[in-house]
Amino acid sequence: MNIDRPPRLAQLWLLFVTTLLAAPIVWMVLSSLKSPEQIAAAPYSWWPRPWRWGNYAEAVQAIPFLRYLGNSVVLCLGSVAGTLFSCSLVAYGFSRLRWPGRDLVFGLLIATMLLPWQVTMIPRFLVIRELGLYDSLWALVLPKFFGEAFYIFLLRQFFLTVPQEMIDAARVDGCSELGVLWRVMLPLARPALATVALLETIAAWNDYGGPLLYLNDPKRFPLAYGLEQFVSAHSSETHLLLAAAVLFTLPMVLLFFFAQRAFVRGVTTTGIKG
């Protein structure tokens, strides 16, 4: 028990470290409310004087913010729908159905997780282009309908914990396999599905490489990519840039506070952020 007894100065040390980690966020929010003159002024002052809430209105008008936001929302919803649909089907096939060669194919699925994305990047780009999806949000959404190894693995682990009796009972009552999945597994797996949905939302919201490769028309840019366009166009207007960055970050912070448990569950199973 004694190991968690704090040593002397524990509070001071923890305060120091957490201040270091949190300070950049505080800095970002406060700077987004300053005037450009105050940002450039030395010596540095933390507190905005005056508070320029107008920075936010200006930042939103400086780029087609609402359009980008709309694209990001479509991207997130489409990706989550595709991921949940494909991964739950596939995870069921890998956990509660027995068929010859299953474990071998599952090993293959796990092996794909070790493949660096750079190896398949170029031919994949050409496949998507051949399908006529270049410069469309479908280029980013459609691949999600084919499942993602890591989410399949996560859901499979969860499906394996469901007692066999429940599945047998459903089958005896005349449920098809899809019925078992829909009526028994998915309702029970709600926490795991929530984790997958959460991780995929974050991944889709944050994705920068996808739009960089596949999108060309600014009308289709999601926020993550649109924000970068803002960087190149307004690199001298730090205050507006930071206001836009705060607006872009805010939904993720809210998501974190509302779904903290699903968050932690995701990280402990994976060790990776989307």
């Binding site: 096939g93 068929w99 493949l115 398949t120 031919p123 050409l126």
Partner: peptide, 28 residues
């Protein structure tokens, strides 16, 4: 029948594997 059912269930991933992973892997 078991094999058919299993393949059908993992179908979405299998298609993606061939088109978006295995083919690109060999092509590159």
């Amino acid at each position: 029948r078991e094999l058919q059912l299993g393949i059908a269930m993992i179908g979405p991933w299998l298609i993606g594997f061939f088109v978006l992973t295995l083919y690109p892997f060999c092509a590159s």
